[in-house]
Design a protein around this nucleic acid. Sequence first.
DNA 1: TACGTGATCACG
DNA 2: GTGATCACGTAA
Length: 197
Amino acid sequence: MNSKLDLSFYRRKDVVKIANDLLGKLLITKINGIVTSGRIVETEAYSFIERGCHAFKGKTTRNAVMFDRGGVAYVYLCYGIHHLFNIVTNEEEKADAVLIRALQPMGGEAYMMQRMKTKSLKRITSGPGKLTKALGIDRKMNGIDLIGNQVWVEEDDFVIKRGGILKSPRIGIDYAGKDALLPWRFTMEGNEWISHV
DNA sequence: TACGTGATCACG
DNA sequence: GTGATCACGTAA
């Protein structure tokens, strides 16, 4: 119960399956002793073989950690404002990753609200840019080990009912042409914490 | 529907 | 060097 996911989970070859499997798990951060966590309710898969992925055109300074072996974080700044958190998967040079897009708060809510400068829990982690801010994730964590003690994912006893996971096209990647139509976004059906699009 | 915001990338 | 671009969020 509540065991940390290990490298064998992250280093599997099928990033689409991993994105599906991450739903219902707990994402946890511990920063300066402050623990915050949330249930993963929305993910997207990205693979170096398709145009939606940062790694499609090869290694650059930004995407370099995507080419590491699975089990590390890929964090980058989007639109100059938002930090986006991804989990690198697959083996070395197979640059796949799962973007975590939304969480249901499961612990440390007071700290999350403090970081978000709000007194309300409403939609506090309902989007990829918001959840990183609420959990204190930023670019300093790019490349960090996910079996370490700062950011990790745990199993939970939460069970998703049969048919409770929906697939849809990924958000905000119109530049990817026909690859933008791949049904690689996974959401927990009916969950109120899913990002609104 | 509009745009802030700044690192990064592809040029040259 | 320089300009275009961007896996978003919020206000309006």
